[in-house]
Design a binder for these strands. Sequence first.
RNA 1: GGCCCGGUAGUCUAGUUGGCCGAGGACGCCGCCCUCUCAAGGCGGAGAUCACGGGUUCGAAUCCCGUCCGGGCUACCA
Length: 478
Amino acid sequence: MPPGTVRTRIAPAPSGSIHVGNARTALYNWLLARRHGGVFVLRVEDTDQSRVTQDAFDAVIEDLRWLGLSWDEGPGVGGDYGPYRQSERSDRYRAVTAALEDANHLYRCYCTAGELAQRRASAHAARRTPGYDGRCRNLTDSERAAFESEGRSHALRFRTPEGRTIAFDDVVRGPIATRTDQIPDFVVQRSDGSPTYMLAAAVDDVAMEITHIVRGEDLVAATPRQLLIREAMGVTDPPVFAHLPLLVAPDGKPLSKRWGDVAVSAYRRMGFLPEAVVNYLALLGWSFDEKTNIFSVDELVAKFTLERVTRNPAIFDVPKLEWLNGHYIRLLSPQALAERLVPVCVDAGLPADSDEGRRLLAAVAPLLNERLKRLEEAPPMVRFLFGRVPPDAKAAKLLEGQGAYLEEVAGALGHAEEWTAGTIEETLRRVAAERDLKPKQAFQPIRAAVTGTLVSPPLFESLEILGRAETLARLSSL
RNA sequence: GGCCCGGUAGUCUAGUUGGCCGAGGACGCCGCCCUCUCAAGGCGGAGAUCACGGGUUCGAAUCCCGUCCGGGCUACCA
């Protein structure tokens, strides 16, 4: 690896489809790596084995792939810094904690969870700072032996140095300094021997030579502790830190399932295109200039910089995502749109998977491009091509007393020289003119009779696709 | 409680070396045009006491102080 290579990482816990906030964090890390010709690492933070399942892990992988955030090192692709699942790195964490304990940076804490909770509660009641009180910080050998003989197990705590200030420069938030008296001695290895997040993340970021740590604002307070761990490990040059503002729900509260869809997979299912989600996520906390909103992935790679990340939390606003999605759907070629529509229509119960179904979708796709904000909206628009649709209330009302007119239309259409949108339009306009009908008066009943609704893709093209025989049949059946 | 961060229209934001800002763009909203419906597109409009109150200055969204509001952290969660 050439010196100066940018290495970024996304470190999700494998707990199912990723949260849109984590997706944004992944995106920014990915963009940074790509922009600098660097390396994007996927590291799975599965130290909490109880919550990990294969399905949940697969969901994370699937989301990242769908978004197009390819990783250069990590599960499935390997790399020189593996393994990339924390559950497979236990020996490394143990080696580090053993060394740190030897160097007196760590000490054994025999306090039980119950005792800790109790002391925290009384500290809270007395309005004192609730952090660990350092009870085991200076145990004598005999005190330790006494605890051991009691059969108590121990956790390893970091011996936070006194009277110092830990400072770092955050690319998005500026200089941040924390006095160590604000940092209680924290657990680095649980009494069952497993590492805490604080330790594992710090150790791995060093081991994997991560140069830029881009993560959520909720971790700014964890940074000084991780810096302390790095220092104890003898690592003095810090990585670049960038803490991204949080993503919040429309009510300003943290994004949660209570508000709506927070999982990337939900947006995939609702018919959003990955390019739209990526573009939208990029805009949530970053801007390039005062007017540009649309960015292809390549443009983002070329233009993204951490310096232009904003500091304030952003509300996840679905309407703007939909607008972008509509834009990207319009950019799709009709063939590409048709292909993406097949599974969506099948899910909606339409036999779109057959040759005939695919033919129909390919034919209507050009009419749908500029009418869809989400792929999910297509099935109701194309349903009439797959079979008769009984008229809805409004269509039924409009159809009252139109039988004779529709018969006349059918007759005229039956004599049209050829069956193209052009000749259909010509024929229908002639009939309308003869009857002295305004276009809207003339066409809406036809639309109602053929599609069962008052809103559909353009009429003439729709009839062409439907075919002459079926069109005539539907017009004559009233 | 303590430490830290944030506060420009309903939303995302531009602006932060003070004057080009009597605040720009986009989404959404309203209207008009186009038009066979719906969209798309074009044009136009409403919407911001730049959280609030004091200062500094010829001049402040931009600098200083205070207040309020929101959020994060304060775990043997990550």
